[in-house]
């Protein structure tokens, strides 16, 4: 058996984090029914053996509510991060490859989107889509691409100077073929890492806008909704309504961030020399 090294360690951590996230997503999906059950004989219970996270003012089990909310967050996070990463890839590559006015317009758009505070932009987009589930997804997906697009643009500009790309250009290989055969494979590590590192942002912003009341309906136990509901009960000392759901959200986000870090370690070992 080969020696246990940092690479294997990273792979192991990556797999473990992915497994936990999948487990939470599935558990939340299964507990969806239970999260809605109200039982007025057991309302406002502090955390105990039977109800680890306590119950709320309608006797709903906070643990299953939290898990359902987290699984919703994870699914929205995956979807929005994927969409925004693909937008970033397309625009970043287009901007660097086409140059000229295309580059000018795309760079201007990047500056534009980066100039509006994220949360305002998500609010505006979710308004445009009518403050529902689609609105939140579109809002988060359409506001997170600029920074990754900028990174990819820089990367492509650098790659274009490489000898093999210039040779291919001189040999008359069509632009699209160069992009597909020479540029995209080189961008893959950057892209994947960027994609995974989008998750934490996406999840946090999703929670933020739902907390503010844009997006998901009050019946849906999203983390943002749970926390905004808890606000009215905090002053009467029901701290568990806010503390545990928030804490588990922090854990999930940290897991995603750790996954991104480990993935970077695997795909781009030179950048992590600490």
């Amino acid at each position: 058996m080969k020696a246990w090294n940092g690479r294997k360690n990273a792979l192991f951590l990556l797999a473990a984090a992915a497994l936990v996230l999948c487990a939470v997503a599935v558990a939340g999906g299964l507990l969806g029914e239970q999260a809605m059950v109200t039982d007025f004989t057991r309302k406002n219970l502090a955390p105990c053996g039977q109800f680890l996270f306590g119950t709320d003012w309608m006797g709903r089990d906070m643990l299953s509510r939290t898990l359902t909310g987290l699984s919703l967050s994870i699914r929205i996070g995956l979807l929005t991060a994927a969409v925004s990463a693909i937008i970033a890839l397309a625009l970043g590559v287009a901007s660097a490859v086409c140059g000229g006015w295309v580059d000018g317009v795309i760079s201007w758009c990047i500056d534009l989107v980066m100039g509006i505070p994220h949360i305002l932009l998500v609010m505006l987009i979710s308004l445009a889509f009518g403050k529902d589930f689609v609105g939140v997804v579109a809002g988060v997906a359409l506001s997170h691409w600029p920074s990754l697009a900028r990174v990819i643009r820089g990367e492509v500009l650098q790659l274009r100077g490489a000898v093999y790309v210039r040779t291919a250009e001189k040999l008359g290989v069509p632009r699209l073929a160069i992009v597909r055969r020479h540029l995209l494979p080189h961008l893959l590590p950057q892209f994947l890492t960027g994609l995974v590192l989008q998750f934490p942002h996406a999840i946090l912003h999703e929670a933020s806008v739902t907390f503010l009341g844009f997006g998901l309906s009050p019946e849906q136990p999203a983390i943002g909704v749970i926390l905004s509901e808890s606000m009215s009960y905090l002053t009467t000392g029901k701290w568990w309504l806010a503390v545990f759901p928030g804490l588990s959200l922090v854990l999930i986000v940290m897991l995603f961030a750790a996954m991104g870090e480990q993935l970077r370690r695997l795909l781009d070992p030179a950048s992590v020399h600490a």
Partner: peptide, 8 residues
Amino acid sequence: ISSTPAFW
């Protein structure tokens, strides 16, 4: 801190 939502 960067994993913690500001509102929480």
